[in-house]
Design a protein around this nucleic acid. Sequence first.
DNA 1: ACAAAAGTGTTAACTTTACACCCATGT
DNA 2: ACATGGGTGTAAAGTTAACACTTTTGT
Lengths: 213, 213
Amino acid sequence: MKQVEILVNIFTIEDEEIKVLLMKKQTEPFKGYWLLPKTNVSDEESINDIAQNILLKLGLENTSIYQYHAMSDFSREPGSHFISISYVGFLDIIQVKINETETKYEKEWFSIDKLPKMAYNHVDIVFNNLNFLRNELKKSTTLQLFFPSDFSLPELQRVYENLYDIKIDRRNFRKKFLQNDLLEETGEYTEDSRGRPAKLYMFKPSIPEVNIL
Amino acid sequence: MKQVEILVNIFTIEDEEIKVLLMKKQTEPFKGYWLLPKTNVSDEESINDIAQNILLKLGLENTSIYQYHAMSDFSREPGSHFISISYVGFLDIIQVKINETETKYEKEWFSIDKLPKMAYNHVDIVFNNLNFLRNELKKSTTLQLFFPSDFSLPELQRVYENLYDIKIDRRNFRKKFLQNDLLEETGEYTEDSRGRPAKLYMFKPSIPEVNIL
DNA sequence: ACAAAAGTGTTAACTTTACACCCATGT
DNA sequence: ACATGGGTGTAAAGTTAACACTTTTGT
């Protein structure tokens, strides 16, 4: 028996931790374990459409995702061949709070340092996907994909500092974006903050491919 | 009806042209057209093993390949869903000449500027894969993967000049490799050449990730 | 007025680019 | 000896990294 399934692996950063969105498995085997949101591939829907539908199910309609990797798994049932195709995304925590809607599914964001009991080989898949994300997010064009809405530069800097566990100089970080002409000011400012409000920017529609890190 | 197939897309550079290895389709539909070497996924073999077996069939056992992308295709037959997973490789023309063995299959290297009549959407797939290869080969670690044997720096430089259609300064190109300590001399020299023989190098086993371009 | 976080320029270190002559081999 | 292609160093230009003080807001 051969089966193809689509996995959607969304990361965010909250409270200085990298988090991943998982769902609780409702049926045996592995009932009560957590796993990456997934759907079996039917004869009617393209794999990209299925990935989009998983986003809908998750209440995260406007999230950009990237197809990453397909892998075979023979360990689930004797004689079975499962092929899992991972899609990877990143969603700014502010967008999570704005966009995430209620669904009937039991889902939760977990820190990658404190993952729950997970079904199949999904722990390995999550870390492979995270590694892929870390590589992709070094490029300005990928960053643009994952930040379609407005954002402040300090907010973005915190994403990089936590995702790669590094410290970045504020002035040099700004320069990267402003000197390469990647952004335009929206004229708006952050409102929630304690100190001085930060300017909000958006990516210009067409930007050069620049290395952020 | 749902079907998963593995495609293997090997590029090389010969006579200053980027070439791709294709096979001639022996059965209808598209009999006589050319396509990327492919195999349907069975219940028994992992997708990576299938890709390796395609290399065997091609008489190119020692070629490194990278899994790239999966895509859905509904256009082949009414009601059918074909999922194609591409593996991409690059093989130095010298290695092609050393390693390529005869097979019973009708195969041929085609310049990407003069592709023959191709089946399905394989023309698009080839160009997507080439684009992927061009991105990957900017990294020293990918280059190492595709050049496991010894090679000369002028030979490598010609690969880059033709793959990206650029001119590179010989001294700066050498510096990139030698100053980053990526290579060790084998002590051997090229023998075929007209002018001064070139030193042969191999990649050191563990190298830093450096941007070649 | 104080605490918290954002905004801003300049210099030194490093990296990349540009450039020209000599060397080894085959004919 | 000549034609062909390979090997080598240095200086200028450009890029990246290091660094501290002022501004805006909320309490």
